[in-house]
Design a protein around this nucleic acid. Sequence first.
DNA 1: CCTAATAGATATGGAGTATAACAATGATGA
DNA 2: TCATCATTGTTATACTCCATATCTATTAGG
Lengths: 156, 156
Amino acid sequence: MSNPQRKQTVTEISDATLRQFFGYRMKRAFNVVQADLAQTLKRYELRMLTYSALVLIVDNPGLRQSQLADAMDIERPNLVVLIDELERRELILRDRVPNDRRAYALKPTLAGQQLCSQAVAAVTAHEEALLQDVDASERAAATDVMKKIERRYRDG
Amino acid sequence: MSNPQRKQTVTEISDATLRQFFGYRMKRAFNVVQADLAQTLKRYELRMLTYSALVLIVDNPGLRQSQLADAMDIERPNLVVLIDELERRELILRDRVPNDRRAYALKPTLAGQQLCSQAVAAVTAHEEALLQDVDASERAAATDVMKKIERRYRDG
DNA sequence: CCTAATAGATATGGAGTATAACAATGATGA
DNA sequence: TCATCATTGTTATACTCCATATCTATTAGG
């Protein structure tokens, strides 16, 4: 390692072209956030998607699978396995919707509510630590940009 | 649809708990950006990763696969198939590194350079359209936040 | 030399996502 | 009523992305 050109290859990689793209920056930052989240949720045996589903069911008891899939922006077939998992762990249950025997009313169990509270608290703390360099106004500004991007998509 | 309670289910889903998380907003916005990018790259038969790899090879001709994997933050085995694909399409080639017969020096072909230019221009235009509601100062603020998150991870 | 480290490749599995197709049920209109 | 269509959840399938273990060829270092 004494000779800096010992292998006659590029020494420093430039990502100048990619760095100009907002999406590139977003992907790199999101990878960090996602890795931190996954690490945080591991002790609750939750993943990002099972966590999101659980929180939404706790906050909206009685919702249908199709509503949950819409809210999570995933396809109905992919939600089924998530719900299967949460149900098998007895964190939620599939109740019947009265007057519509096609649909399930998803409801959290007591254990599901408790795990949800713990997980939300843990995620809040970890996200706070991850964003400790970012003050409130910066977060608000970044959040506004995210909202605009999301809205732009919904509108078409 | 005349009776708003006709099915006795939750009518409007609340994601208030999740919305408080920066990571949640980021994921939703990033999904939009990624979908737009994928759509843009489709006509060039590129995906996000093959596109990133191609751009980095064009900008850093002669770099090694392990350097590229580092730059892209992906594992070496996963890069191999990306490089295979770009090489098979004759957008890049695996040259030999002098004095190190283990390594390849990745270089773009002329076709690779041309496709890269076209793709970069298309991505730039599409990203501009996606961000047309977001002015320069907002973008800069959001980009700063992304940089801080990324740096926080690198530092530990 | 002998051993350890490095570069690339192969195999494999998990996770996320998307589509097609199906059964059961509900809604609608002739 | 009844025929038709839409909706709900499900199964099967496939593709992409990501991670790990393991292998070879080669290089580096004691």
